[in-house]
Simulated assay, not measured.
Amino acid sequence: MFRYLIIIICILYIVQYIFKMLLPAIFRGLINNVQQNAQQNARQQYYQQQPPKQPEGRVKVDYIPEGNKQKLPDTEGEFVDYEEIK
């Protein structure tokens, strides 16, 4: 009986030592896989959000130069003085 108890205790210590060595490596591998998947998803989302590139030779202007803006005439609206009442 005592012999079996010693064998069980030795087996438990060996299993505990093996788990101390293997579990960090297993978790490291899992974490690396999750990180790689997250990076791939981020890349896919980044490329999907990019505006499509225009074919070569086409020009698109997204702004209006300052000189071409229409100015409001002086008769449009007026400034009203006000006093703050407390």
Results as ranks from 00 to 15, higher is better:
residue 40 Q to A: 13
residue 75 T to K: 06
residue 41 N to G: 08
residue 61 V to A: 10
residue 44 Q to S: 06
residue 86 K to T: 05
residue 28 R to I: 00
residue 56 E to A: 04
residue 77 G to S: 02
residue 9 I to E: 08
residue 32 N to E: 14
residue 57 G to F: 00
residue 12 L to P: 04
residue 80 V to I: 05
residue 74 D to F: 06
residue 38 A to F: 05
residue 60 K to D: 15
residue 46 Y to L: 15
residue 71 K to N: 10
residue 69 K to Q: 12
residue 83 E to N: 09
residue 36 Q to A: 13
residue 76 E to K: 11
residue 34 V to F: 12
residue 29 G to L: 07
residue 60 K to L: 14
residue 49 Q to P: 00
residue 50 Q to P: 06
residue 47 Y to S: 04
residue 15 V to L: 14
residue 16 Q to Y: 13
residue 40 Q to K: 08
residue 5 L to P: 01
residue 1 M to G: 12
residue 29 G to S: 05
residue 57 G to L: 01
residue 52 P to M: 11
residue 53 K to F: 06
residue 34 V to T: 15
residue 69 K to W: 09
residue 30 L to I: 09
residue 40 Q to V: 02
residue 25 A to T: 05
residue 80 V to Y: 08
residue 35 Q to C: 07
residue 44 Q to K: 06
residue 22 L to K: 08
residue 30 L to K: 11
residue 9 I to A: 14
residue 69 K to V: 07
residue 8 I to F: 11
residue 55 P to H: 02
residue 85 I to T: 01
residue 62 D to S: 14
residue 75 T to V: 06
residue 11 I to M: 11
residue 4 Y to I: 03
residue 84 E to F: 02
residue 37 N to V: 00
residue 10 C to F: 03
residue 25 A to I: 01
residue 8 I to Q: 10
residue 1 M to A: 13
residue 12 L to H: 03
residue 21 M to V: 10
residue 63 Y to E: 09
residue 62 D to A: 15
residue 11 I to G: 04
residue 86 K to F: 03
residue 33 N to C: 05
residue 32 N to L: 13
residue 45 Q to E: 09
residue 41 N to Q: 12
residue 16 Q to T: 12
residue 67 G to T: 14
residue 65 P to A: 03
residue 14 I to S: 12
residue 85 I to Y: 06
residue 78 E to A: 13
residue 51 P to M: 04
residue 53 K to D: 01
residue 38 A to H: 07
residue 73 P to I: 02
residue 66 E to T: 02
residue 64 I to R: 15
residue 20 K to I: 01
residue 35 Q to P: 02
residue 38 A to V: 03
residue 17 Y to L: 08
residue 44 Q to A: 04
residue 55 P to R: 02
residue 32 N to Y: 08
residue 55 P to V: 02
residue 44 Q to Y: 06
residue 42 A to N: 05
residue 2 F to A: 15
residue 19 F to N: 15
residue 6 I to P: 02
residue 8 I to P: 00
residue 15 V to M: 09
residue 31 I to D: 05
residue 48 Q to C: 03
residue 36 Q to V: 04
residue 4 Y to A: 10
residue 76 E to L: 11
residue 17 Y to F: 08
residue 63 Y to D: 00
residue 72 L to S: 10
residue 35 Q to W: 03
residue 51 P to F: 00
residue 34 V to D: 13
residue 65 P to F: 00
residue 27 F to Q: 10
residue 21 M to D: 12
residue 53 K to C: 00
residue 17 Y to K: 02
residue 47 Y to N: 12
residue 26 I to M: 11
residue 85 I to K: 02
residue 40 Q to C: 01
residue 34 V to K: 14
residue 27 F to G: 01
residue 7 I to R: 10
residue 44 Q to F: 03
residue 43 R to W: 07
residue 1 M to C: 07
residue 76 E to I: 08
residue 25 A to R: 08
residue 3 R to E: 14
residue 6 I to D: 08
residue 39 Q to G: 00
residue 40 Q to Y: 04
residue 15 V to F: 13
residue 66 E to G: 06
residue 46 Y to K: 12
residue 18 I to R: 06
residue 18 I to H: 05
residue 74 D to H: 04
residue 6 I to S: 07
residue 47 Y to K: 03
residue 1 M to T: 07
residue 6 I to N: 07
residue 56 E to R: 01
residue 35 Q to I: 12
residue 82 Y to P: 00
residue 19 F to D: 11
